[in-house]
Design a protein around this nucleic acid. Structure first.
Lengths: 243, 243
DNA sequence: CCATTAATATGCATGATACATATATCTGTC
DNA sequence: GACAGATATATGTATCATGCATATTAATGG
């Protein structure tokens, strides 16, 4: 049966149907480590636990539009790299009712991250650092600002782990890293972002050469200011034509 | 607002909610080319057009379970490589009502593909070849058995294009190719699968060495039979431990 | 003016890959 | 039974990407 044959077979509105929500992984790099913006739940279930910000999908709203709306309403951000991550549909993922969640990955610059923390402290009370367990590239751990491990609400730890894996996988062949950097950046900043996401150190000359050979970096001729030592040149990301 | 805060804010069941369906891209290699199993619609809208088989997600059924059920009921297949692809949620993707579709990719061996065609001719009337337009690795075209181009129902052409891109991207670093091959296969068969999906010819010695170096091929010591010329050794896929 | 620090540049060894070519093993023909 | 034809399998070599060591440049601060 095709998805649209139901009018002649049965009326699905006569049955209870799953609700559809979007949940956002708001991810940025803070102090050289990956960090996500979370909300602290003040209601049952999972009172007091941290959770990903989310919202229901309206009947006249595309999934992408719903994600953008949540980004706007919850984090006060108009612009961010938004991409669909995965859809989580286990029956018991929410103890009260059936909710299917389409997870989105939102990448924030350090500036946007800090702005969201400052502007909406009530909605986004804290930044949670994401650490690769044992620094070996294994599964992720969530660390509160204090440093203690914590357990996210619902299946949000799975969502976060999926986000980190996706990010790691796309890092070297896509342009996601640039969504985490300001308009102008140095090669060292770019390498710092890669190292934070991968959780490993990279060889500097090899990294520089590889990035420059990709042809998507535009030297600006300007240099960083305020450096105690030799200032680095500022680059700009230039989207490739042959994509 | 978090996805589960609604009990204290508003009741989403009081509003119309989107329905959730799964659609399957049943993909195999036929005669050295990628092919998908489609159903011919006999109802409005898009009467007479080809469409991906799909079905609604039950209230007590996970997304993966719904995909497996559609695979079982529509194609009569108990086993196939099933993986979630992407979720399509444009508002107007179905002209009658709001349906969010979670697309799954199902990979079939040539044997399973042919069996599905033969056993369920009423449900799966035809195999449609998928061709890379211009054989240059560009966007996909769908060709009916006769050879004429055709237009799929709804946004199913987008879904199919997404499936082909995903498959191409995962081909060399994942084990998806083996889901398209029988238990025992020759290196030439493996290369044929890669070439069909990529739409380009590959260098034979380089391909062999790379595959053997991955360490996931187990030589069986047996050889293909019925070959007019030197018979090739049969290999078996052996999942790697260090995954 | 020199020590310090990091950015930038270069040289070299290593490993992966593309391509050409050689050898092995089967069938069918004469 | 030798040989041609066809394909599997193996090897050799040039080229390219990468990792790592090291040199050079440009800033600050004593």
């Amino acid at each position: 049966m095709n998805e649209t044959d139901f009018l002649n077979d049965y009326d699905p509105s006569a049955f209870q149907r799953p609700s559809v929500a979007v949940d956002l992984v708001l991810l940025g790099i803070r102090a050289g480590r990956p960090a996500v913006l979370l909300v602290k739940r003040d209601q049952l279930p999972h009172v007091g636990r941290w959770a990903l910000p989310g919202g229901f999908v309206g009947i006249d709203e595309s999934l992408d539009a719903a994600a953008a709306r949540v980004l706007r309403e919850k984090a006060g951000m108009a612009e961010a790299h938004l991409e669909q991550l995965y859809t989580f549909g286990a029956v018991e993922r929410d103890p009260r009712m059936r909710i299917i969640s389409v997870a989105y990955l939102a990448l924030l610059t350090e500036q946007a991250f800090d702005a969201a923390l400052g502007v909406k402290p009530a909605l986004l009370p804290a930044a949670i650092h994401v650490a690769w367990a044992g620094e070996t590239g294994g599964p992720v751990d969530m660390l509160a600002p204090g440093g203690e491990k914590l357990t996210l609400a619902f299946d949000h730890a799975d969502i976060l782990a999926t986000a980190m894996l996706r990010l790691r996988g796309k890092l070297d062949y896509s342009d996601v890293a640039f969504a985490l950097l300001p308009e102008l950046f140095t090669l060292r900043q770019l390498q710092d972002v890669h190292e934070a996401i991968l959780g490993t150190a990279l060889n500097k000359p090899a990294f520089r050469r590889r990035q420059l050979d990709k042809g998507w970096l535009m030297a600006t001729g300007a240099y960083e200011s305020g450096a105690a030592f030799r200032p680095a040149e500022l680059y700009r990301f230039q989207r490739l034509m042959a994509d």
